[in-house]
């Protein structure tokens, strides 16, 4: 696992997630970038990301890669933050179901081989 992702996940775990905003064009992005992916300038500023997001897409995985093969089925969520960035993580929910448009809160879990981003529904 890359050091920048460990740093990114640890900030989520600390309750202080961050994102990057372009001062030139307003584009938003996630680490580890030096250059704005939209306008190409080097005017990215690190800002605090909110801890809740809206579910944009979900899928339940039945057949997986070796690392997660023993944990199927599990649900993947792509959630969009108010700031505009999207993030991918695993659903942590008692019921196990979630729909597009629902609000979730972001978290991070430390595993044997790195960090896992999670999303849990907000009641």
């Amino acid at each position: 696992m890359q050091p920048w992702f460990v740093d990114f996940a640890e900030r989520i775990d600390d309750g202080k997630p961050t994102y990057l905003a372009c001062e030139e064009c307003g584009e938003t992005a996630l680490a580890p970038r030096t250059v704005c992916p939209d306008c190409g300038t080097r005017t990215l500023e690190e800002r605090r990301l909110s801890e809740t997001a809206t579910v944009s897409a979900t899928t339940t995985i039945f057949s997986s890669i070796p690392e997660y093969a023993d944990e199927t089925p599990y649900t993947i969520v792509v959630a969009t933050f108010d700031e505009g960035v999207r993030l991918t993580g695993q659903l942590r929910s008692d019921g196990g179901e979630i729909d597009r448009g629902e609000t979730v809160t972001v978290g991070a879990e430390e595993r044997d081989d790195g960090w896992l981003v999670t999303f849990a529904p907000v009641d």
Partner: peptide
């Protein structure tokens, strides 16, 4: 095959290659 995706932002979350297309399909 998952190496075609983003190792940190996608694979580390347990997102497989069929899973990525499943997300696109759902939307």
């Amino acid at each position: 095959l998952a190496n075609a995706a983003d190792n940190e932002y996608e694979n580390a979350a347990g997102l497989t290659f069929p899973g990525i297309y499943a997300l696109m399909a759902q939307v």
